[in-house]
C-alpha cells in the first residue's frame, strides 16, 4: 500500500458522536484551506490566458497586502512595554 495518497487515509475525517455535519464541516474547511475545492472549480472550464494572468496578479497583490497588514497589526499589538497598560494605574 502506497501511503502517499492511500484512500481512506488521505482526506478522511472520522465521525464523532454521530455528528456527521461537524465532520463534514471540518473536511470542507480543510479542503477549502488547501485550495483543493478552488482548483476543482477552476478546472471545470478552461481558464483563458488573460484570466490566468489577472488571477495571478490579483493573488500577488493580495498576499503582499496581507503580509503588510499582518506586520502592522503585530506592530500595534506589541506588548514589550515597561508599563503594559499606560495610564490605567
Amino acid at each position: 500500500m502506497t501511503l502517499k495518497h492511500a484512500s481512506f487515509i488521505a482526506r478522511t475525517v472520522f465521525v464523532k458522536n454521530n455528528d456527521v455535519e461537524a465532520a463534514c464541516r471540518v473536511l470542507n474547511r480543510i479542503l477549502g484551506r488547501e485550495d483543493i475545492l478552488d482548483q476543482f472549480r477552476r478546472t471545470r472550464y478552461f481558464e483563458k490566458p488573460f484570466q490566468f494572468r489577472r488571477r495571478i496578479n490579483f493573488e500577488k497583490c493580495k498576499s503582499i497586502y496581507n503580509e503588510d497588514m499582518d506586520r502592522k497589526i503585530q506592530f500595534v499589538l506589541r506588548k514589550n512595554r515597561t508599563d503594559p497598560f499606560p495610564g490605567s494605574s
Partner: peptide
C-alpha cells in the same frame, strides 16, 4: 457512518 472521505478528482 464512521468516516467521511473526499475523493474529488483534482489535478
Amino acid at each position: 457512518i464512521i468516516s467521511i472521505t473526499d475523493s474529488t478528482r483534482v489535478s
